[in-house]
Every structure is written in C-alpha cells, then in structure tokens.
Design a protein around this nucleic acid. Structure first.
Length: 749
RNA sequence: UGGGGUGUGGCCAAGCGGUAAGGCAUCGGUUUUUGGUACCGUGCAUCGGGGGUUCGAAUCCCUCCACCCCAUCCA
C-alpha cells in the first residue's frame, strides 16, 4: 500500500476518530446484468480493501431491482471475480431482492407521511412534466391524492391489479429542484415479469434510488462508495433516509472516479456488443477487459490488485495507460515463473561438427530470481532458432547471429555461421554452423565474446504447441466502436516449438518464453494432444523500440489560447458601492469588486469600518477571510462580529500581531467566537520583532540544515522560504516574518 | 443553458500557507548467458488562465476557461 492515503480512507479514518462509527461496513453492490470488468476490480479493491484495512467488513450485494435485465449467470461471474481476487464476503451473498418486503413497508410509511404518491401519468407525460435542466418541472395533478387513496392504489399495484406502466409510486419532493434527480423521483414501477430470484411474487419493483440507500441502511453499511455519476443521486439517498427518520448510525455516500484504460472499452453496452457480435470468443476472451478475460489470459489476481493500488483513487475523470497494467503483470510474473525456450518462427540450424547428443541441465530461473529448479535440455546436431535471430545483412547494433558474428545458444554452446542455404525463392531455409566444444555454458574456456544468447530447441525433441498471440483489442486510444477494432489482436501460431520439459514436466501453468514474453497454459483449450499457450504480455523489448521507424508523433504543439470570458456586469447598486470603495476608500479594484458584488460582504465591511477607520486592512481581511466563512455559513450564524474583526485589524495595524498570527486568531474566532484581543493575550501571540531573539534561532536553523544552506548558496533561492518557514515554526509563528526575511537573507549572503 | 463535479510533467497521483512526493512511460548508463530483471542517473511542471491577499500561494479570496455527470418507469 502506498504511503499516502486516498481521500476515502481519510474520510473513514476521520469517521472512526470522531466515533461516528465503531465499525466500518462497506459493500460491493453490482447489478448482475453483465460480466465484471477491471473497473469493477477497482471498486472491489476499494470496498473490500477498506474493510480489510480498518477491520470492518464488506458485503457482496447483488443489486437486483430490475428483473428484465438481470440473470443468475452474472451472479456467478461476480462471485467468481471477487473470489478470484482473493476477497471473502463472509457468510452469505446479499441480494436487494431479499429486502423487497421491507422496502415495501418503507414505501407505505412514506405514503402515510404524505411524502410519496401514486402517479398515473403516462411515461411520456412524466418526461414532459419533469421539465429540463433550465426550466422547472410541474407536479402531476395525481400528487393531490389522499393518503388513503395512495395506500389503496399502491397495494393494488403490489397485488398486480394494474398493467405495466399504468401507475408508479413517486417521492413528493420538489418539481422545481435544480437537481433534476429531486423532481419527484420514481420509487416503484409495475413490472409483470419473472424475477430470477424473487420469482413471480412481485409485480412492482423498487427503483435504484429507493432501494439502494435503504439496503445500505438495512445492512448497517457505513460508507456507501460509488462512482462519480451518482453524485446527483446523493440528494435522494439522504432524503429517503432523513425523511424516514432512520436512526443513526446511517450510511453516507461517497463518490470516486471510475477507471478508464486506453485502447479498450469499459461500458457494459460496448462489451456486450463485442460478445454478441462475435468479435471476441466470449466474456472471457483473453482480449476482453473483463476479469474473466484477464484470468483466462493469464493475469494474476495479485497483478490486478497491485494495479488498482498503483492507480490511486481520486475524483478526476482519468484514463490510465495500459502500460501501467502491463508493468504490473510483468513485475509480478518476473519473480514467479520458470523460464523456458520456445521458437515461434523456426529456422533450421545444422551444427556440422556436433556428433551424438546430450542433455543439458538448465535452471528454470535466472540468477536474479531466488528460486530453485531445473530441467533437462536435449541438445543435438539439428536445432531450430528463431528466424529473427539470424540476419545476413544486419543493421548496426544487431547482437544476434550473422555470417560474421557468433552467438550463444542459451544454456548451451556458442555457434558460428558457416553457410546460408536458400530455397528457390531466395528465402533462407537453413543455416550451416559449427559449435565450439569448449564454450559450453558454465564451463566456457573458449574466450569467444558474444553479444547475446538466443533461444533454441532440438529439432528431434521439440514439442509442437499452439501459441495464441494477443495484442490490444482496439487500434484507437479511445475507441468509439467496433470500427476501431484491431484486426491483428489475435494471431495464432499452430506450430510453435517448445523444449520438451514444458509439456512433459509442467513445472507451472505460466512460463516466460525466454526473450519473448509471459505465457499461460489456456485453462480450457489446453490438452496433452494440443497444448495451447496464451500470451499474457510481451517482455519489454528495447531492441524493437530502437529499430522501430520513428512515427511522426510530433505533436502539433498547439499553443493553448485562452478565451477570457465576459464578466457579468454589476448592478447599479453594486456599481455605486464599487465606485465608493475605489475612489473614496482607495481600495484596489479586485478587493472592491469582491466586496461590492456580495451584499453580505459589503454590509459586513461597512459595519466593521464604522468601528475602525482602516479601510484597506479591513477590506483585505473581509474580502479574503470573512468571504470564506460566508461561503459556507449565513451571515447571522457567524460566530464573530464586524466589530471583532475591526479589533483584529487594529492589532495588525498597530504591529502587535503579524498577518500570519491574525489568520490563526481569525480561525479561532470563527470557531469559538472568542474575542481576538483575548485570544492574543491568552496565547501570548504578540509578535517578536527583536533581532536579538530571532537571530539565535536563525543560527540554529542554519547549523541544522547545512545541505540546504549549500543548495541555497548554489543558487536555489527558493530555499529562502524554507528557512523563513523553519524560523517561524521555531517561534510558534510569532516571529515577525518581515524581520525574519531580512535577517535570514543577510545571514545567508 | 440550471444544478452537481473535476483540472498538478506524456499517463496516473500526493500535496491542505514555507525545498512541487511517488508510480508508469521516455531517454542515458552499470550489471547481465533473456536487447528481460535489478541498480544508478537524465530530462520533462507556466500546479487550467488572469487578478488579489500574504514576507511567502498548487494550497486562501475573486474571476474567467475547459472537460465530465444529470431531463430512463436503467443502475
């Protein structure tokens, strides 16, 4: 886990610290209407991770309120995913559908309170009545029904006495709300359909906004963590719980940004399209960003979890680079899996001076992986190497076999090319070579220097395997749809050759095929007759990078031009104030502008000014500090008065306290309403301007930070702030910063 | 357009008034019987823009801009 906390964990810790909750309960609440993808993995990691970190627990809850879309196969996929990632949901899986009876009772309660009503508008009318983002909606005439009538109708809805869409139950909130979600949201709709768990018992089903908050409450959830698009729904979440008067502890909703990864898609709709359109082999196609896909591809749970941890949790919409994910799986597998040799595109090499055969003992792991294990590697006169590892006319920097450059066969001997045989088309069909008997790996006395060691297999003993080479599914960094599909996302090599131990010993299900990448024995299609390996991820390849033709990725380097928007004009009154502030009181126009445009601020300012004639100082503190307080609170709930601000300013003007201390004092005033003079006296905050007191502290700081002194002298003038800050800290903020600045500057120069 | 959010290197992301963390990617170098790994290093930051407050602002105030979400009987 990274050392800095994400904002959710900060909230959790604060809630624990303040004893808002004694135990943390989270939940992972997917709708079982599709296969979970890596975005779900992020959510799983967050919810189960937080529960684990704070010794709470996390419920796995299927949010199954829409019977037309959900299915039990998805429930299983969701459970598999959570389990595979290594989390434990405890006794049971929760289902929103289990709460249908209680949810119904809560709805009845709302009706009785006059807070919900049965609406009989058509779907189209409901839409129209809702208004738009800029125009308020209007309430349905059915909202006037009596409680009795509503109760009666709602019961009949439940009993299946109406057709679909004939009525709905709605919360009575505010059709003019700026938040569209609060315009009398639907609570229940009629659906005469079979529910995969509740059967045919219900003909009404609760909506997300009604069911979710209450399910959380019922389960004792404390932190209801969801993605950003539910921010607007938070108001309903709170409304339901508050209106019902549910006793604390109650859950609160917090939102984070969903995961986006480039070169893939994450929406259920697009994923479904890939599956149903046959563009992939299924939900678990190794190219899919589904958890089942990554699992089939050969990713490990650890690598996915590590990835989730690395990308962090925040509220900014973001698009993570796939390379980050690829790093995670390489990083995980590097220390875990055995290295073996596989030749995908074989080129025959005949070692003319080699007689007989031998078995070489070769370690499965490189020197830097502290694991034991080895296998026997048959060596013979006829072998295959990778076609790419020989070049007749190599470019500069080519380390492999050429007519003039010997190469080492990994774990075996050094060979030198003697002759290149070509077929009728001029294609190289075979290499004749010689080996150097005294160059055997581990006991090399030949003194021959080679630039690299390449993989190879014995022609007679190699085993044929199928290798499936996967590449990114989409060509476009941000794919729009199937038109962006990568036609080469899957290449199948039917006749790759591996050393025999791979299929005979089965040392692992994942291997590194040396110099190629990591591969995984396909859990479904692999058989002893036809072994199949999926490419998980390629090794980093700095040679390929070097030889790649530099595409003109030259960014257009558009100089961002910023449009300065038009500032709303002032009203006449505001203009009058503004003029008075700038002309009479000589305030700078920015401060005057801030004050003049806000009635509460200008009132506050004028009042403070009537106690103390210090227009500029008061203006500054009102326009900056007081403004902040007024953003969150109403003027009449402020703990401090204009008069007290005047007193505070007076102390600044007289030099009793510095601006820095004034801020500190102000904060306390805002909190407790104490008198500023009193705060200063009690805490002894009077500022220190006497160099005789400050100088020794400066000396101390300077001797304590020789490195920074050196840096400063080397030209890093930003460090002046560091020293001033340290001195100020050393005096509890009381040193006069202007004096400190001057003294520090003198000392250092 | 009303409301709700978000802007910190190429991509993520810390930071909460006092030296702009870290990871990925990039580019060098060392080690290497994987052109891998590991290690070292490099470069890259107008902290969305502009003002203001302050000795000092990514952080506080004002303002503008850009992007995302909301007008499903989906979740």
């Amino acid at each position: 886990m990274s050392e800095s906390k994400d904002f959710l964990r900060s909230i959790v810790e604060e809630d624990l610290r303040s004893a808002k909750y004694t135990e943390i309960v989270t939940r992972f609440p997917p709708e079982p209407n599709g296969f979970p993808h890596i975005g779900h993995a992020k959510s799983i990691a967050i919810n189960f991770g937080i529960a684990r970190d704070y010794s709470g627990h996390c419920n796995l809850r299927m949010d199954d309120t829409n019977p037309t879309k959900e299915d039990t196969q998805y429930v299983e996929a969701l459970k598999d995913a959570v389990k595979w990632l290594g989390f434990d949901w405890g006794e049971k899986v929760y289902f929103t559908s289990d709460y249908f009876p209680r949810l119904y009772d809560y709805a009845v309660e709302l009706i009785k309170m006059g807070k919900a009503y049965v609406d009989s508008l058509s779907e189209e009318e409901i839409r129209q009545y809702r208004g738009t983002v800029t125009e308020p909606g209007r309430r349905s005439e059915y909202a006037n029904r009596s409680v009795e009538e509503n109760l009666d109708l709602f019961e009949k809805m439940k009993n299946g006495e109406f057709q679909d869409a004939e009525h709905v139950l709605r919360a009575k909130i505010d059709m003019g709300a700026a938040n569209m979600k609060m315009r009398d949201p639907l609570l229940y709709r009629i659906r005469h359909v079979h529910h995969f768990r509740a059967g045919d018992k219900w003909s009404i089903y609760p909506m997300y906004d009604f069911a979710h908050c209450l399910s959380d409450y019922i389960e004792g959830v404390t932190h209801s963590i969801c993605t950003l698009e539910f921010e607007n729904n938070r108001d309903i979440y709170d409304w339901v719980i508050e209106t019902l008067g549910l006793k604390p502890p109650r859950p609160y909703q917090h939102e984070f940004a969903r995961l986006g990864i480039n070169y893939t898609v994450m929406s259920k709709r697009k994923l479904l399209e890939l599956v149903e359109g046959g563009y992939v082999s299924g939900w678990d196609d190794p190219r899919m960003p589904t958890i089942a896909g990554y699992k089939r591809r050969g990713y490990t749970p650890e690598s996915i979890l590590n990835f989730c941890d690395q990308i962090g949790i925040a509220k900014a919409n973001s698009m993570v680079d796939v390379s980050q994910l690829e790093f995670c799986i390489r990083d995980d597998l590097n220390t875990k899996v055995p290295r073996v040799m596989c030749v995908m595109d074989p080129l025959k090499v005949t070692i003319e001076n080699y007689k007989g055969s031998e078995e070489i003992d070769a370690s499965y792991y490189p020197h830097d992986v502290p694991k034991e294990g080895s296998r026997k590697l048959p060596f013979a006169k006829e072998i295959y190497i990778e076609r790419e590892d020989f070049m007749e006319n190599p470019p500069k920097g080519y380390y492999r076999l050429t007519p003039d450059q010997p190469v080492r066969l990994k774990h075996a001997y050094i060979i030198t090319c003697k002759e290149v045989i070509k077929d009728a088309d001029g294609r190289i069909s075979e290499i004749k070579a010689v080996y150097h008997p005294d160059s055997k790996s581990g006991s090399d006395t030949s003194g021959i220097k080679v630039k690299s060691a390449i993989q190879w297999v014995s022609a007679a003993e190699a085993k044929r395997v199928e290798v499936r080479l996967y590449d990114r599914l989409f060509l476009a960094e941000i794919p729009e749809g199937i038109e962006d599909l990568n036609p080469d996302s899957l290449k199948i090599i039917k006749n790759a050759l591996v050393e025999p131990a791979v299929v005979n010993e089965k040392a692992d299900e994942r291997f590194q095929f040396e110099r190629e990448g990591y591969f995984y024995a396909d859990p479904i299609d692999y058989t002893d007759e036809n072994p199949v390996f999926n490419k998980i991820v390629a090794l980093k390849d700095s040679w390929a990078k070097k030889t790649k033709v530099p595409q003109n990725t030259e960014k257009p380097q558009v100089k961002k031009e910023y449009v300065e928007g038009e500032v709303a004009p002032m009203s006449e009154d505001e203009q009058v104030l503004f003029d008075r502030y700038t002309k009479e009181l000589k305030l700078n126009s920015e401060v005057a502008n801030t004050l003049a445009r806000d009635k509460r601020l200008s009132h506050f300012y004028d009042e403070a000014l009537s106690t103390l004639n210090s227009p500029t100082s008061i203006a500054n503190i009102v326009a900056n500090e007081v403004a902040r307080e007024l953003k969150e609170k109403e003027a009449d709930t402020l703990k401090f008065s204009p008069k007290q601000i005047a007193e505070l300013v007076k102390m600044i003007d007289e030099g009793t306290i510095s601006n820095k201390i004034a801020k500190q004092v102000f904060e306390q005033m805002a909190q407790s309403g104490e008198n500023p003079v009193q705060i200063v006296q009690e805490k002894g905050l009077v500022q220190i301007s006497d160099p005789a007191i400050i100088l020794p502290i400066i000396d101390e700081i300077i001797t304590k930070n020789p490195e920074n002194v050196a840096k400063f002298k080397a030209g890093n003038t930003k460090l002046l702030g560091f020293f001033v800050g340290q001195v100020l800290k050393g005096t509890g903020g009381k040193a006069n910063p202007t004096v400190v600045n001057t003294l520090v500057a003198e000392k250092l120069n």
